[in-house]
Amino acid sequence: MLGPAISGTERTPDLMAEAGLIYHTDWMHDDQPVPIRVNSGKLVSVPYSIELNDAPLFRQHYEGDYFAEICKAQFDQLYLEGAESGRVMCIALHPYLIGQPHRARYLDEVLGYIMSHDGVWQTTADDIAEYYIANYYDQSVAHAAQLNNAAA
């Protein structure tokens, strides 16, 4: 879930976990998922990118060619870093913007470029959160607890 206008409060994560949600995308802080401490359940912050969001870019009068350029540059860096540990590249799209006839080819160009590389997992935030919870959540929470104990 991405809150309306990214407007969550400090209670939002707990309310989301209580409602059975497993992730949110309101915190634009990293390129890897991280666990969020909640009172009950498990909640993950799945990376979201405002930089690769077509809405602010196109509203600031950038166009499709620039969008394609920065998406490819972002991918190249994350792909390089991802050789060590997986990365998430979120491209936030709005069909009423990127779907315009004069822009659609740029999205096709970006996706073709990305998918031409080996080992790319084209997926959804749901799948990322489920995979993270199944494979890394508990380990990450334990590591954070160790760090907190060491700092105390």
Rank of each mutant, 00 (worst) to 15 (best):
G119D: 10
W121S: 04
C90V: 08
M16W: 09
R105F: 00
Q139A: 08
Y136V: 03
V44K: 03
A129V: 07
I128F: 02
R11K: 12
A5H: 10
L97Q: 13
L80I: 10
H117Q: 01
G8F: 08
P33Q: 01
M28Q: 12
Q122H: 13
D65E: 14
Y79M: 08
Y131S: 10
I114L: 06
E84H: 12
H94N: 08
D126Q: 08
P47I: 05
A55N: 14
T124W: 00
G41V: 09
V141Q: 02
R87Y: 01
F75M: 02
L107G: 14
G8A: 07
V44C: 07
E63C: 10
G99S: 06
L93M: 14
G99D: 03
I70H: 00
Q146Y: 08
Y79W: 12
P33D: 01
P101G: 13
N39V: 09
R59G: 06
M1I: 15
Q77A: 06
V34Y: 07
E81L: 15
Y66C: 05
D127Y: 01
M28I: 15
L80S: 14
F75C: 02
S116C: 07
L97Y: 12
D30H: 14
Y96K: 15
H102T: 10
A145V: 10
G99Q: 05
H143S: 10
V141P: 03
Y137T: 06
H117T: 05
P95Q: 02
P4V: 13
S140D: 13
L78F: 06
P4I: 12
G112D: 15
D26T: 08
F75E: 00
D26K: 06
S49N: 09
V141G: 03
T124D: 00
Q100C: 10
E109F: 04
G112C: 08
A145R: 11
E81P: 07
C90G: 04
E69H: 10
A145Y: 02
H29M: 14
Q122W: 07
P35C: 03
D76M: 02
N135F: 05
P95H: 07
H102D: 09
W121I: 13
A152M: 09
Y113E: 07
P33M: 00
P56Q: 05
M28T: 15
I6K: 06
A142L: 02
D14M: 11
H61F: 14
V38A: 04
A142T: 00
A142S: 04
A145C: 02
D76W: 03
